[in-house]
Design a protein around this nucleic acid. Structure first.
Length: 917
DNA sequence: CTAGGGTTAG
C-alpha cells in the first residue's frame, strides 16, 4: 500500500480562515481521557493505508498505545483549521482525504472532533459506503458527548446508516434524538425508502406533520417516491394530495417536480407526468430523462423516441440514463435501425460504451430484435460486468431459444466472473434448461435454486412450476403451486396451462373455478392486504383455459367464460376472441363460432386460421376456401394480414375432409409462388392425407418420395398409413408402417393401425404378429377416452374402465340398444377390435368404446330431444360410427361427436360427413 | 436528499 496522500501537501493544509485566527486553542485539556488513552504518533503510512482501505480508524486500535510520539509538536494544533480543512475536503468530494484528515486530527494533532467535524467525516464515510468506519465514528460521537448537543450530527448519522447500515441502526439513532428538525424527518423518511419500507416511510411522514414540522421540497421527494411504490389507488390519492400541497405552498424545486413526474410515471399516469414536465420551465437533464422513462415504463414507445429528439433539439446532451431509458423503446418496437443509430451515437460521442447500464439496454435491444450475436458483442465489450448485464444477455439467449448459450453463460458467470445468479437469472435460464436437449439435470437446477436461497422468489417459483409441467411432472408443479405463500396471476396461469398441456383439462377448469373463488373472497375482505395479489383471471387465463373447454366439448363452461370475458372487457382481445371462435367451433357450434368471429373488432391471422379450421372440421370445405379467399383479399387491402403456414394446414385439412382434392392440390402447388409460404413437412403430411383419404394412395406415396430428403417424414407416413386403413390397402400400408416402425418405434397407434389393416383384410396371423411386436417393444396404446359435459361437471369415460358410478347402468342400456340396432340391420364391424386379444382388450370389447358409453350417459341423463355432444381423444372408429347412426335414429336425438380431427353430426340415421372421413 | 438496468404464463 503506497501512501499516496502527502500529510502536509497543500491539499491537506488547513485553509486558515478568519475564524481560525480568532480562536487559537489546542483543546488538549478538554479531553484528557483521549490523550491518555491514545498516543498521537500514528505512523503516517499506516494511517493513509487505513484511510485508503477504509476499514478501521486507528483510534480504537490497541497498537497505537505502544508507539512513541515524535512529530506531534510540529503540527498545527488549531482545531478550527483542522475542521475547516475536513469540511472543505468533504464538500469537494475528496472523501478519502477527508477521512485521513479526520484521523490525523485525532491522532497527530490530538484534537477532538466537534459538531462541524462529524457531519463532514460522516459524509465521506457515507459516500464510501463503509459501515465499519461509520460505526467507529458513531462511537466517537458518543465518546465526545456531542450526540445530544447537535441535531445535525444525529441527522448525518441517520443518513449514514440509511446508506450503509440496516434499518435497525437507523431507528436506534433516530429514536434517541431529543430534538428533531426538518432534516431529521427527511433523513428517516429517505432511509425508510431506501429499505423499501414504503408504508413506514409514509407513516413517518404523517408523524412529521403531527409534530408540526413543515415538509420541505426535500421531504416531498421521498414522499413522492414512497407513494409511487404503494398499491395504485392509495399511492395515487396520497401522492396527489402531497403534490397539491407542494403547489399550494410553492414548496418545490426542479428536483421535486422530477420526483413527482417519476411518481406519476410509476402509477401509470403518463398524462400527469407530462403535464408537470411541460408546466415547469426550468427543466434539467433529469426532467428529460424522467419524461422519457415515463414513456417507456408505460409502453408509450414512440413518444419516448420523440422526446429524445426534442431533448437533443433543446440542446441537452443525453447521458447514460437517457440511453438506458430510451433503448427499451427501440427494443419493444423492434426498431433495430433506430437502436443501432443510438448505439453509434454512444460509441462516437460519449464515453459510455463501457457503461454497463447502457450495455444492458443495448444487449436487450439487440436480442429483442433477434440480433443475438450483436448483443453478445456489446456484452463482450463491457469490462465491468454486473448481474444486470449477465441477466440481459442470458435472457436474450433464452428468449431466442439459444438455450445452450444461455446455459453456458449461466455457468460461466459464477465460475469465471464470480457473480452469483439471482432470481431474475434463474427465471430466465429455467425455460432454457427445460428446452435444451443436451441438458438433463433439471432437478439439479431446482437444487441450485434452493442452495442460493432463491426458492421464495415468485418469478423463480413460477418458472420452476412451468419447468416441471413441461417435463410432464405436473404433480410437482402442483406441489410447488400449493406451497407458494403468495401466488400471482402468472402462478395461476402457469398451473392452468400446465394442466391443459398435460391433457388434464378437468383440473384446469377446476383451478379456474378456485381462482375465481379466491378473487371473490378477497373482494369481500374489509382489510386489504397489499402483499396478497388477487388472482383476477386475465386474457392469458382465458386463452389458456378455453382450449381445455374445446377439448372437452364443454360448451356450458365455455359460454360461462365467454360471459366472464364480456363482463371484464376481455372479449375484444384478439387472443381471447380467437380462442372463443375456436372453442365454439370445437364444441360443435359453428354458427356461434362464426358470430363471434364477425363481432370481433380486431382479427389477426390466427383468428382467420381458427375459423377456416372450424369450417374444415365441420366438413364445409367450400366455405373454408371461400374464407381463405376473403382473407387474402382483406390482406391485400390492409397489407398486414397474410396467410401463413398454419393457414395452409387449415386449408388442406378442410379440403381433405370434404374430398376437394383438386382445389387442395392446386393451392399446394401455388402456395410458395402466390403466397410466399414455403411448403413444410406438415404441409406434405396434410396433402398426403388429402390424396390418401380420396383413395389416391399411389399419388400419396409418390408425394412422400418427392419430399426433400432433409424433411421429417413421420407425419406424412402416418397420414398414408391412416389412409391405407380406410381403404384396406395392405401393401402400401406395410410400406408406411415399416418406415414408421423405424422412425418412431414407440408410437402405439402405428402398430394398431397396421394390425387393423391386417385384420380387416382377414390376415389374422399377421395382425397377431404386430400385436406381439408391440408387446415386445413395450408399447401401450393410449386408452380411448370420451367426455360429456353434464351440469357443472365434465364426465370422463375411458374404454374398458368401469369406474364411472353409472357404469353398470350404461352397459345394460347399451346392450338393450344393441339388440334394437341389430333388428334395424346393424352389423358390428369388428375390424378395429383385435381378435385373440389380451385381457385389457377383452374388456374393451365387452364395454364398448368410450364414445358409446358417453353417448349412453347422455341419453340416460338429459331430457329427450337434447342434443348430445361428445368429445373424443382419438379418432372415431368405424364400428362406433355405424352404431351411432343407428342410435341417433332409434332414440331420435342429434348426436355430435368430435374426435381429434373433425365432427360427426348424427341425425336420424345419417352422419354429416356422408361416411367420408 | 431527485432519474435508470430485468425475469416467469401466452
Amino acid at each position: 500500500m503506497t501512501c499516496y496522500i502527502q500529510p502536509f501537501s497543500p491539499l491537506l493544509t488547513p485553509p486558515f480562515s478568519s475564524r481560525t485566527f480568532s480562536s487559537l486553542r489546542t483543546d488538549h485539556h478538554h479531553h484528557p481521557a483521549l490523550l491518555h488513552e491514545h498516543n498521537h504518533s500514528l505512523p503516517l503510512a499506516s494511517a493513509a493505508a487505513a484511510a485508503a482501505t477504509a476499514t478501521a480508524i486507528p483510534i480504537t486500535s490497541p497498537t497505537l498505545t505502544s508507539t512513541a510520539a515524535t512529530t506531534s509538536s510540529a503540527q498545527p494544533l488549531f482545531q478550527e483549521s483542522w475542521v475547516e480543512s475536513l469540511r472543505f475536503q468533504a464538500r469537494s468530494n475528496l472523501f478519502r482525504e477527508a477521512i485521513l484528515t479526520y484521523i490525523q486530527m485525532l491522532t497527530l494533532a490530538g484534537i477532538s472532533p466537534d459538531n462541524f467535524a462529524f457531519p463532514a467525516v460522516l459524509k465521506a464515510v457515507t459516500a464510501l459506503q463503509d459501515l465499519n468506519l461509520g460505526k467507529q465514528i458513531h462511537a466517537h460521537v458518543f465518546k465526545f458527548g456531542y450526540a445530544s448537543s447537535s441535531v445535525t450530527v444525529a441527522n448525518t448519522l441517520v443518513h449514514m446508516y440509511g446508506k450503509c447500515g440496516d434499518i435497525g441502526d437507523v431507528y436506534k439513532v433516530f429514536n434517541r434524538m431529543t430534538d428533531r428538525d426538518e432534516v431529521s424527518w427527511n433523513s428517516i423518511i429517505a432511509s425508510l425508502c431506501r429499505f423499501q419500507e414504503w408504508e413506514l416511510a409514509l407513516e413517518a411522514f404523517q408523524l412529521m406533520l403531527f409534530d408540526n414540522m413543515a415538509p420541505s421540497s426535500f421531504t416531498l421527494v421521498s414522499v413522492a417516491l414512497a407513494c409511487s411504490n404503494f398499491p395504485r389507488h392509495d399511492g395515487l390519492q396520497l401522492g396527489q394530495q402531497v403534490h397539491a400541497y407542494s403547489l399550494r405552498t410553492g414548496n418545490w424545486r426542479t428536483f421535486t417536480n422530477n420526483a413527482f413526474m417519476a411518481m406519476y410515471a410509476k402509477l401509470g399516469r403518463v398524462a400527469d407526468s407530462r403535464a408537470l414536465f411541460e408546466l415547469f420551465e426550468d427543466r434539467d437533464m433529469i426532467s428529460w430523462n424522467t419524461m422519457i422513462s415515463t414513456f417507456t415504463q408505460n409502453d408509450h414507445f414512440l413518444e419516448a423516441l420523440f422526446f429524445l429528439y426534442l431533448m437533443v433539439l433543446d440542446g441537452i446532451k443525453p447521458d447514460g440514463v437517457t440511453f438506458a431509458s430510451v433503448l427499451p423503446a427501440c427494443s419493444h418496437l423492434e426498431m433495430l435501425d433506430r437502436g443501432k443509430e443510438i448505439h453509434a451515437y454512444v460509441l462516437k460521442n460519449t464515453n459510455l460504451p463501457e457503461n454497463s447500464f447502457v450495455g444492458s439496454a443495448l444487449v436487450d435491444m439487440y436480442c429483442n430484435c433477434r440480433q443475438v450475436e450483436s448483443g453478445r458483442r456489446v456484452f463482450d465489450g463491457i469490462s465491468k460486468r454486473g448481474i444486470p448485464l449477465f441477466n440481459a444477455m442470458i435472457t436474450g439467449y433464452a428468449q431466442n431459444e439459444y438455450d445452450e448459450e444461455a446455459l453456458s453463460l449461466f455457468f460461466q458467470m459464477e465460475a469465471l466472473d464470480g457473480i452469483y445468479p439471482n432470481g431474475t437469472t434463474m427465471s430466465s435460464v429455467l425455460p432454457a434448461c427445460v428446452r435444451c436437449d443436451l441438458f438433463s439435470d433439471q432437478e439439479g437446477m431446482h437444487g441450485y435454486v434452493i442452495k442460493r436461497g432463491l426458492e421464495k422468489d415468485r418469478y423463480v417459483q413460477n418458472a420452476l412450476m412451468d419447468m416441471y409441467s413441461r417435463m410432464g411432472n405436473i404433480e410437482i408443479s402442483k406441489y410447488l403451486f400449493d406451497s407458494m405463500e403468495v401466488r400471482d396471476i402468472v402462478s395461476w396461469n402457469t398451473m392452468i396451462t400446465g394442466y391443459v398441456n398435460c391433457g388434464c383439462h378437468e383440473n384446469a377448469l377446476h383451478l379456474l373455478h378456485a381462482m375465481k373463488k379466491v378473487e371473490e373472497k378477497n373482494k369481500d375482505d374489509d382489510f386489504e392486504d397489499v402483499n396478497r395479489v388477487s388472482p383476477k383471471p386475465n386474457s392469458v387465463t382465458l386463452m389458456t383455459v378455453l382450449p381445455g373447454c374445446a377439448a372437452l366439448s364443454a360448451l356450458a363452461k365455455g359460454k360461462e367464460i365467454h360471459a366472464y370475458a364480456t363482463r371484464h372487457f376481455l372479449a375484444s382481445d384478439v387472443a381471447v376472441g380467437s380462442a372463443l371462435v375456436d372453442m365454439y367451433a370445437k364444441c360443435g357450434c359453428l354458427n356461434l363460432s362464426r358470430r363471434m368471429f364477425d363481432r370481433m373488432p380486431i382479427r389477426n391471422v390466427i383468428t382467420w386460421n381458427v375459423l377456416i379450421m372450424a369450417y374444415g372440421m365441420h366438413g364445409r370445405g367450400e366455405e373454408a376456401l371461400e374464407l381463405f379467399k376473403n382473407m387474402a383479399a382483406e390482406g391485400d387491402k390492409s397489407g398486414i394480414l397474410r396467410p401463413n403456414e398454419v393457414t395452409f394446414i387449415a386449408i388442406f385439412a378442410a379440403c381433405s375432409h370434404s374430398g376437394m382434392v383438386r382445389e387442395g392440390l392446386h393451392l399446394f402447388h401455388r402456395m410458395k409462388e402466390d403466397y410466399g409460404v414455403e411448403p413444410a413437412p406438415d404441409h406434405y403430411a396434410c396433402v398426403v392425407d388429402l390424396l390418401g383419404r380420396a383413395g389416391q394412395l399411389e399419388e400419396a406415396y409418390e408425394l412422400i418420395k418427392m419430399m426433400p430428403p432433409e424433411f421429417d417424414k413421420r407425419d406424412a407416413w402416418s397420414s398414408l398409413l391412416g389412409a391405407c386403413r380406410i381403404h384396406w390397402n395392405v401393401e402400401t400400408g406395410e410400406i408406411a408402417a415399416k418406415n414408421l416402425f423405424q422412425l418412431e418405434p414407440n408410437v402405439a397407434s402405428h402398430y394398431v393401425l397396421l394390425s387393423n389393416i391386417y385384420s380387416s383384410a382377414g390376415h389374422w396371423e399377421k395382425a397377431m404378429e404386430i400385436r406381439k411386436m408391440m408387446q415386445k417393444m413395450g408399447v401401450r396404446k393410449e386408452p380411448g377416452c370420451s367426455w360429456f359435459e353434464f351440469g357443472d361437471e365434465v364426465h370422463k369415460f375411458v374404454a374398458g374402465d368401469a369406474s364411472h358410478p353409472q357404469s353398470e347402468q350404461l352397459h345394460g342400456f347399451l346392450e338393450t340398444l344393441s339388440e334394437r340396432m341389430r333388428r334395424e340391420g346393424y352389423v358390428p364391424d369388428t375390424s378395429c377390435v383385435l381378435h385373440n386379444v389380451d385381457e385389457e382388450e377383452k374388456e374393451t370389447l365387452l364395454c364398448g368404446h368410450s364414445e358409446k358409453l358417453a353417448i349412453a350417459f347422455g341419453i340416460l341423463n338429459t331430457r329427450p330431444g337434447t342434443t348430445i355432444r361428445v368429445a373424443k381423444n382419438l379418432r372415431v372408429c368405424n364400428d362406433c360410427h355405424v352404431a351411432t347412426k343407428f342410435i341417433s335414429k332409434i332414440v331420435d336425438r342429434e348426436i355430435i361427436v368430435r374426435d381429434v380431427r373433425r365432427f360427426h353430426h348424427f341425425r336420424n340415421g345419417t352422419c354429416s360427413c356422408g361416411d367420408y372421413w
